[in-house]
C-alpha cells in the first residue's frame, strides 16, 4: 500500500513539525535579511552585516525548542567585495563568534565553497540540509546544518546564505520517543539514506541504510524521511 493512502500517525507529524519548523524559521529570516540588505546599495561592509545578523542569531539561540547550536549568515562573492566572502556566525549560549579569522582571509570564498551547506544553496538557489556530519570548520560537533539562500528584494542573485546547526544529540532528545512509538526499527534518515535518529539499537547516526521494499516512508521537511515498519 502506498504511503499517501495511510493516515499519517501523530508521532510522524511531530517529527515533521520539528523539522519544518526549523526550515520555516530560516525561510522567514532569509526574507527579512534580504529586505534589510536591499536597503543597502553596492558593497555592504562587514560591520553592517554583523549589525543585522547578530540580533537575529541571539533571538534564535535563545529559543529552547529545539535548541539550536549555532546560526549565522555567510556572504556570497560580490556582497562585501569581489571574490570575497564574509562570515557572521555565532554559536552556543555565550554567543561565541565562529571562524572569525576567515574574514581577514583572501581565500575565504574557496573555504566555504568546499562546504556542502554553503555550495549547494548558493549554486542551486534552493534551501538545503547537510548531514549528519562533524563540523570541523566551526563547532567540532556532530550536527545537521540547515541553510537557506538570501536574495535582495527584486534580485535573482544569491547574496549569501543563512543557516543554523542543530546538534544530532538534540534531535535524538526531541525525536527518539516518537520514533520508538512508531516501532522498534524506525529511523529519521537524510536524503542520502543516512541515519539521523533511529529507534533501532543496531543503527547509529551516520550509518547508511537503504529503504526496504516492504517498509513505509514518510517525507519529513525538504530533505528527510522517516523509514521503517510502522507495526511492532
Amino acid at each position: 500500500m502506498a504511503a499517501e493512502q495511510i493516515e499519517v500517525p501523530a508521532p510522524v507529524r511531530q517529527v515533521q513539525s520539528l523539522i519544518t519548523g526549523i526550515e520555516g524559521t530560516l525561510e522567514k529570516w532569509a526574507q527579512d535579511l534580504g529586505r534589510d540588505l536591499s536597503g543597502m546599495r553596492g558593497i555592504v561592509p562587514g560591520a553592517a552585516i554583523d549589525g543585522l545578523v547578530q540580533p537575529a542569531v541571539k533571538g534564535l539561540l535563545a529559543k529552547d525548542s529545539p535548541e539550536l547550536a549555532g546560526a549565522g549568515f555567510i556572504a556570497n562573492s560580490g556582497l562585501v567585495g569581489p571574490d570575497r566572502s564574509y562570515i557572521a556566525w555565532w554559536q552556543g549560549p555565550q554567543l561565541e563568534r565562529v571562524d572569525a579569522l576567515a574574514n581577514f582571509s583572501p581565500s575565504s570564498m574557496e573555504r566555504y565553497l568546499k562546504a556542502e551547506w554553503f555550495r549547494i544553496p548558493v549554486e542551486s538557489g534552493i534551501p538545503h540540509a547537510t548531514g549528519p556530519y562533524i563540523d570541523f570548520l566551526c563547532t567540532d560537533d556532530y550536527v545537521v546544518t540547515f541553510t537557506h539562500p538570501v536574495r535582495r528584494e527584486g534580485s535573482a542573485e544569491v547574496a549569501g546564505i543563512v543557516g543554523t546547526d542543530v546538534a544530532v544529540r538534540t534531535l535524538e532528545q526531541n525525536l527518539i520517543r516518537g520514533l520508538r512509538q512508531l516501532g522498534p526499527a524506525v529511523s529519521l534518515v537524510s536524503a542520502e539514506g543516512r541515519v539521523v535518529v533511529s529507534s533501532a539499537l543496531s543503527l547509529e547516526p551516520g550509518d547508511l541504510i537503504s529503504l526496504d521494499d516492504a517498509a513505509v516512508s514518510y517525507p519529513v521537511g525538504r530533505r528527510f524521511a522517516i523509514w521503517g515498519a510502522t507495526e511492532d
Binding site: 563568534r97 572569525a100 579569522l101 574574514n103 581577514f104 582571509s105 583572501p106 581565500s107 575565504s108 573555504r111
Partner: peptide
C-alpha cells in the same frame, strides 16, 4: 594552512580583539 597569506595585512589590535572575543 594558507588561510592567511604572506604579505597580507592583519587586522588591528582592536579588530582582532573584537573578532576573536
Amino acid at each position: 594552512t594558507g588561510l592567511l597569506v604572506s604579505g597580507q595585512r592583519l587586522p588591528s589590535e582592536v579588530e582582532l580583539a573584537a573578532a576573536l572575543g
